[in-house]
Design a protein around this nucleic acid. Structure first.
Lengths: 206, 206
DNA sequence: CGCTCGATCAAACGACCGTTTGAATGATAC
DNA sequence: GTATCATTCAAACGGTCGTTTGATCGAGCG
C-alpha cells in the first residue's frame, strides 16, 4: 500500500529536496531519503540511476517551472512601453518568491539552490548554466535597455550582486530573527519587497 | 620528520579549511584532511576532540581576526566627523576582502563561511552569532546615524541584504566568468569595489 | 642513565555509505 | 490460465566513515 497519493518518483524527489536542504547533498543519505519517502532503498537507483542523477532531477523539477514563470513575467514587461526598472526586477524576483512560498517544499528548494551555489561543483554549475543560462541573458538585454548608462560589464557585476542578495534572502540565511508572530511566508514577502527597492537603487547608481 | 614549519594543529586547520571549502563539512573526511596535512589520522581527535570541534576551530581562527579588523576600521570611521557612508561600508567590507586575499587559505575560508550560512545548523549559527553579533550591532549604530531617514527595522533589512551580497561575492559564487588574464585576487578586488558602490546606493534609497 | 609524559603511530572498532542482486509482486495482454 | 514486464522488496556487496585503542617515540629532567 502507498502511504501517499503521489508516485514513488515524486515522493523520492520531495523527500530528497527537504533532506538535501537540511543536511546537504553529502550529508543526506539515500537511506534517510527513502525512509522519509516511504519507499524501498533500491527505488532511487531503479528510478534515477544514481544519487547524482537524483540531485539533478530535484533541480530540474523546480527550475523548469521557475524559468518559465520568469520568462512569462519578462515578456509582459517587454510589451509595456512604460515599464520601470522595478517591474523588470519584479519579473526576476517574484517568481523565486512564489516558488519559495509553494506549499509543498518550495522553501526547501530555495535552500537547496543556495547549497548548489556553495558547492562550486563543476558538473552542477554546467548543468545550471546549460539549462537556464539563456533566461538570464534575456534579462540582461532588458536591463541593458533600461540602464543605458551602464556598460555590459558593469551591468553583469551588478546583476550578479542582485542574484547573490536574492539567493541569500530566499534561502533565509540572514541574521534577522523572524518575530514569533510572523510566518515564514510573510517574512519572505517582506524580504522580497526590501530586495526590489534596494536592488533598484543599486542598479541606478551612477 | 615534519613536512612543514607549522605545528600539527596549524597544519590540520589549514588543510581542513581548504577541504571544507571544496567538499563541505560532511563531504570532506578526516582521512582526506589528515592526509593533506601530512599528519596521522588520530591527530584530529587527539588535538581537537572531534570533527565538530575542528570545524569550530576553523572558524574561530579567522573570525577573531576578522572581527578585530572590522572593529578597528569602524573606530577610525567613528572618530572622523566627515566620514561618508562609503567609508562605513568600507570598514565592513574591506576586512573581509583582505581576509579573502590572505595568502594562506583566506579565500578558502570565505567559501567555508558561505557554507556555514547554507548549513542552517543551529549550533553553528549560535556560534557565529556569538562571535559576529556584537560587531554587527556596532555597525548598525553607525549606519543609523548616517541614514537617519531609515528606521531601525528598515536598516536591519538592508544591512542583511548587504551581508548576503558580500558573502556571495567573497565566496565567488557568481556566474561572472573570471577572464583568464585576471587573477582571483583582482577579481575579488573588483567585486568589492562594485559592492561598495551598489550597497551605498541601495542603503541611500528612500 | 632511567623515568616521565605529551605526541605520534598503525591498526582496529562498529556504523553507515551508495550500489547491486535476484526473488517476489501485481497489473496487463493474449 | 499463463506469459510478460515494470515495479518493489529484503539482503548483501565492498568501501569509507568518525572514533578509540594500546604500542612506540623522543625531548626534558633528576
Amino acid at each position: 500500500m502507498n502511504a501517499s497519493q503521489f508516485s514513488t518518483k515524486q515522493r523520492i524527489l520531495g523527500a530528497a529536496e527537504v533532506l538535501f536542504a537540511r543536511y546537504g547533498f553529502a550529508g543526506a543519505s539515500l537511506r534517510q531519503v527513502t525512509a522519509a519517502a516511504n519507499v524501498n532503498l533500491a527505488a532511487v537507483n531503479y528510478h534515477f540511476g544514481s544519487k547524482e542523477n537524483l540531485i539533478e532531477e530535484v533541480f530540474r523539477r523546480r527550475l523548469d517551472d521557475l524559468n518559465a514563470r520568469r520568462q512569462a513575467a519578462l515578456s509582459k514587461v517587454e510589451k509595456r512601453a512604460d515599464a520601470t526598472l522595478e517591474d523588470a526586477l519584479d519579473a526576476f524576483i517574484r517568481p523565486a518568491l512564489q516558488l519559495s512560498l509553494d506549499r509543498s517544499g518550495g522553501g526547501a528548494f530555495m535552500r537547496v539552490l543556495a547549497r548548489a551555489y556553495a558547492e562550486h561543483d563543476d558538473r552542477l554549475r554546467r548543468f545550471l548554466s546549460d539549462n537556464y543560462g539563456h533566461v538570464l541573458r534575456e534579462f540582461v538585454v532588458v536591463f541593458h535597455h533600461m540602464l543605458p548608462h551602464l556598460d555590459k560589464e558593469e551591468l553583469y557585476w551588478r546583476l550578479d550582486i542582485v542574484a547573490g542578495a536574492l539567493t541569500y534572502a530566499m534561502a533565509d540565511f540572514g541574521v534577522i530573527k523572524r518575530k514569533s508572530g510572523i510566518s515564514e511566508q510573510s517574512h519572505r514577502e517582506r524580504a522580497a519587497e526590501h530586495l526590489v527597492r534596494f536592488a533598484a537603487a543599486g542598479l541606478r547608481a551612477p
